[in-house]
Design a binder for these strands. Sequence first.
DNA 1: AACGGATCTTGACTCGTTCAAGAAAGCAGT
DNA 2: ACTGCTTTCTTGAACGAGTCAAGATCCGTT
Lengths: 143, 143
Amino acid sequence: MGHTSDFERLLRGVDLRVTRPRVAVLSAVHDHPHADTDSIIRAVRQDLGEVSHQAVYDVLRALTSAGLLRRIQPSGSVARYEARVGDNHHHVVCRSCGSVADIDCAVGHAPCLTAAEDHDFVIDEAEVTYWGTCPRCAAQAHQ
Amino acid sequence: MGHTSDFERLLRGVDLRVTRPRVAVLSAVHDHPHADTDSIIRAVRQDLGEVSHQAVYDVLRALTSAGLLRRIQPSGSVARYEARVGDNHHHVVCRSCGSVADIDCAVGHAPCLTAAEDHDFVIDEAEVTYWGTCPRCAAQAHQ
DNA sequence: AACGGATCTTGACTCGTTCAAGAAAGCAGT
DNA sequence: ACTGCTTTCTTGAACGAGTCAAGATCCGTT
């Protein structure tokens, strides 16, 4: 789902040095969208052998602020990361197991950003989190 | 902004025992909407003298699950509580100072809940968080 | 007034994340 | 390729928000 050289290109494109941990993190997040930090650490270690958790935290921060990753954090969850950036998509979160799926913005860009009374805030983004039950948990509840 | 007896009535209305910490927490959240747990603890102590933080955590959980309070937690923030419950309103969060303000749901109930492709999740709530800059921080940035 | 279960106190502890100092690695220029 | 400078990684400690657990206290009913 993406070759090492693709990730190298992505990194150079945003003026970041190419390091093995960075490539491995990019690869892990591409392969496991919405993974939390711990899962990413495990994936990276499976790929490279021992890597410090601090390195992964640093990499995740660098890649996020460079715009290669997006960090999401639904209430009650730890931080999760995804590689789908630059579009205005949202997320559904399962109340029971915490799993996350992507939701395309239903009503388009403009309506999402329209707030009736904005208290003089300058609003630049509207983030929508849908809450519900995932198919797997719904099936278990019906037994 | 609400007398002790009002809060007592609220508590009895949801079959919760009336205790001094509970009344004080209800009062604090009514007076300081979107306050975080630490602020609430300080407000409660100013009111009652020493109260354990654990008691406040317990009370916040009990009141939230009874529906008297609502808990919100924007990414990167600690938990915050508000007493405005039962309506579908949303929040603006200032990226710079973290302050929160209420936003009424602009497009009504139904559209908010409409997701184009829901991955077979059963969606029961759509939570919107607007991100931007509050008037105070905007003014400081313009100097 | 007394009882029983809910609630509060106390104190330890967990977990995700960050801080800090030094070692190692990437990359530009020779 | 080699140097040197800077960024990045390793190591290990620390932090803050929140939770767990056991016993004392309080609320509301009998």
